[in-house]
Simulated assay, not measured.
Amino acid sequence: MSTNPSPLWLTRPGARTWRCAPAPAGVRAFHAALPDYAPTPLTELPSLAAELAVGRVLVKDESHRLGLPAFKALGAFWAVHRALAEREPAPVTLVTATDGNHGRAVARAARLVGQDAHVFVPRGVPARAVAAIAAEGARVSEVTGPYDEAVRRAAEAADRPGSILVQDTAWPGYEEIPGWIVEGYATLCAEIDEQLAGVGPDLVCVPVGVGSLAQAVVTHYRSRPSGQAPALLAVEPETAACVLASLTAGTPVSVPTGDTVMAGLNCGTPSSLAWPYLYGGLDAAVAVPDAASLRAADDLAGLGVSSGPCGAASLAGLRALLTGAGAEERRTALGLGPDSVVVLLSTEGTPAC
C-alpha cells in the first residue's frame, strides 16, 4: 500500500452546474492572423493513462506558442492589441510585473508594435528568465520583494504619462486589461475542442498563479450546456496556494509566499476578476510540493513533452489526487472512472518558468 501522505486539497460539489457567459468572438481570428500562429499540440500519453487508471491522458503542450515558450503570449498579444486600439497613435511604454513568461510576452508584443516595455521582476525568478525578458528589448527592474510587491511597483510606474499597465491580475478599479488577457487565453481552449474532435474531456487540470488562465478555462467549459461540463482542477505550489486558501475560506485571501521552483505560480493573492469564476466553477484545488512538480517535468520530458515545473504542476496535481491514501474517494469526488478523458495543461516549456 502506498505511504504517500494525503494531499492538501479541496473538492466543491456542484461546481459543474455553475454557468457563465462565453468568451467574446473574434479572439481566435486575431491569433490565427498572426504570422507565427499555429495550434499547439495535444499529445496523448497512454503510459500516464495506465499509471493513473483512466481512459486517456492528453497534454496541451504550450512549450512553443507564437514564438515564445509559454501560453502567456495569447493573452498579452490580444490585450496589447486592444489597449492600443483604444488610444490615439503615440509612443507608449507598456508596463507589467511578472514571474517570467507574462513579462516576456508583453515585452515581445511591445517590440512587435514598436513600443517600449518596462517589466518588474520579483525575487526568485531565475536569471535566465530575467535575461530572456531583457533580450526582447525591455527595461527590467528587479524587486527584492515577492510578486505582489512587483505588481504594486509596476502599477505605480504605469501612473506616469505615456504608460499603460498590462497586468495579468486584477484588483478593484483595474479590471479591463486583465479581462482582455483572459479573453486571449480562450484560443487555447478552442484548440482543445477541435483537437478532441467532439470528445469532451472529463477532467481538465490547470496550473494556477493568480487564476487568470483558470478563469479562461472556467469560462470556456461553464458556458456550455449542463451535459457538457467536465470537472476542473486547479493546481498550485504548496508555498503559494492562494486559490486553495481562498476557496477554503469562501472569500479571497492573501497568503505569504516562499521560494518554489514553480516561479510562475508563486503568487499570494487571487485576481479579483478571476475570483467569482474560480469560486463558482472550480470542482477542486490541490497544492503540490516542488519535488512532485520536478518529478512530473522529468517524466514528461521522458515522454517527449517539454515542460517546466509550472507546466508539469498539472500532472503533479493529478497524481496527488489519484494515488496514495484516499485516492478512491478523491477519484469518486471528481467523477473519474476507467474510461475518463483527462486533459493536462502544460503551460510552458523548459527551462523558463
Rank of each mutant, 00 (worst) to 15 (best):
G264Q: 08
V286E: 10
D283H: 14
R222E: 13
L321N: 12
P289Q: 02
L303P: 01
P270A: 12
V288D: 09
D290I: 01
V255R: 03
L265T: 02
V288Y: 05
A313N: 12
L318Y: 06
G227A: 15
A296I: 08
G304M: 10
A287W: 03
T219Y: 08
V288A: 05
D290S: 02
D299K: 02
T239S: 15
S306W: 09
G281P: 13
M262W: 01
G280Y: 07
L282S: 06
L300W: 05
R295D: 14
A231P: 00
G209M: 07
A214L: 14
S212R: 01
A291P: 00
A216F: 02
S307L: 10
P237W: 04
G311V: 06
S246A: 01
L322Y: 09
C310E: 15
A245S: 15
V261R: 09
G211A: 06
Q215P: 00
S246Q: 10
L232C: 04
A216K: 03
V208M: 11
L247S: 03
G209L: 06
S306K: 04
L244Y: 11
H220Q: 14
G211N: 05
V305P: 11
A296Y: 00
P276N: 14
T260K: 03
A297P: 12
G280H: 09
S254Y: 03
T257P: 01
L322N: 11
S271M: 03
A312G: 00
V255H: 02
V253K: 01
T269D: 12
G250A: 03
S246G: 06
A297L: 04
V286A: 03
S212F: 08
D259P: 12
V235Q: 06
G308S: 10
A229Q: 15
S272D: 14
A241D: 07
P309Q: 05
S307D: 15
A316R: 08
V243R: 06
S212C: 15
S306R: 11
P237L: 06
A313I: 11
P207H: 06
A241R: 14
Y279G: 04
L315K: 02
A296S: 08
V204C: 11
P289S: 01
P256G: 10
S293V: 00
D259F: 00
G281H: 06
T257C: 14
P237M: 05
R224C: 09
T323A: 12
A320T: 11
S254P: 00
A234W: 01
P270I: 11
A241F: 04
V305N: 10
A292T: 05
C242D: 10
A263C: 09
V218T: 08
W275L: 04
P237N: 13
V243F: 01
L247A: 03
G311T: 11
D290M: 02
Y277V: 02
L273V: 08
L322R: 13
G304A: 02
S314H: 10
V204F: 07
A316P: 13
R319Q: 12
A284E: 12
A316H: 06
T239G: 13
A263P: 00
P289Y: 12
P289C: 02
P270V: 12
A312F: 10
G250I: 10
T260D: 01
S293F: 01
L300H: 07
L213Q: 12
T269Y: 02
G211I: 03
G280V: 07
P270L: 09
A234H: 04
